[in-house]
């Protein structure tokens, strides 16, 4: 099915209109809508284009969607240091309610990449998602935090970036370009996801030599599909390279084909 594209509508929603969102509507009636939960920090910027492409591809198939920014990220209110894991969960629920209101669809699919995928998995019941599609979700927060801390330390010494090495103090309290509160650091390190309460498709684009962290989710019924080419998320050489993944868009459209 191909619908007449409708221009995405930017606006604010949520408590005190603090959250920025772009609603990708469709002309005809829709049964299902997709909430696109972004990753955090630099992953959000790197994947911005692929999220836009996905939203437009969904709209062309007659599936409305909402892209949004968590409080303290993107165009939403708040400073970057104010990003809070629990607030992000509340924001995702507010975004789900906003999408239902705008699209008229009760059936929502939650989509998220990296920490956005983790959030979707955690919020599935509260946001009343009928189905989840998650892209390289972070399921072991402590390992993820350790990786980001190590990369941040490498960043300040990166001779490709700085003429002279920077001090530990200059780089303290940040993850790859974004300030991180001690609270968020602790919250993300506590993330551990081993089960899912709704039908879940995991799109795995991590390199093949990465240990399979999704086994517990698979044991609980989640399906895993590998994506090619692989996505390199944590590499200083690619820190400011856009993540492009036509395979991701094809996989999501394929999964939602029946729903549309």
């Amino acid at each position: 099915m191909s619908e007449q594209p409708v221009p995405a509508i930017p606006g604010y929603f949520g408590v005190d209109n603090q959250l920025f969102g772009l609603f990708h509507g469709v002309t005809g009636p829709a049964q299902t809508a997709v909430l696109l939960c972004p990753p955090f920090g630099q992953d959000l910027i790197r994947s911005h284009r692929v999220y836009r492409q996905l939203a437009e591809a969904l709209a062309n198939r007659g599936i409305p969607s909402l892209r949004f920014d968590y409080f303290g990220s993107g165009d939403s209110s708040g400073n970057s240091i104010e990003v809070d894991w629990l607030r992000c969960q509340a924001d995702a629920q507010a975004a789900a309610a906003e999408l239902r209101r705008r699209s008229g669809c009760h059936r929502l699919v939650g989509f998220g990449g990296r920490l956005g995928g983790s959030l979707v998995l955690i919020c599935a019941a509260a946001a009343e998602f009928s189905e989840l599609i998650v892209w390289d979700p972070v399921v072991h927060g402590a390992a993820y935090v350790a990786q980001l801390d190590a990369l941040q330390d490498q960043l300040r010494l990166d001779s490709m970036r700085f003429s002279q090495p920077r001090s530990s103090l200059d780089a303290a309290g940040q993850w790859l370009g974004f300030p991180v509160s001690a609270r968020l650091h602790q919250q993300v390190s506590m993330v551990r996801i081993a089960s899912t309460s709704v039908p879940t498709l995991i799109l795995d684009s991590t390199p093949q030599d990465t240990p399979n962290e999704f086994a517990p989710l698979q044991a609980g019924g989640a399906r895993v599909t590998s994506l090619a080419p692989t996505t390199v998320w944590n590499d200083l050489d690619r820190l400011e390279h856009a993540v492009l993944s036509p395979g991701l868009i094809r996989a999501v459209l394929s999964q939602l084909g029946a729903a549309a």
């Binding site: 995405a8 930017p10 604010y12 209109n17 772009l22 165009d75 209110s77």
Partner: peptide
């Protein structure tokens, strides 16, 4: 529209073909 202390932000679709997005 979102209000913060001292200023307000508004999101727009703008331009001669309504093709641009800005805040």
């Amino acid at each position: 529209m979102t209000r913060t202390q001292g200023f307000t932000e508004k999101a727009f679709r703008l331009g001669r073909a309504q093709h641009l997005i800005g805040v």
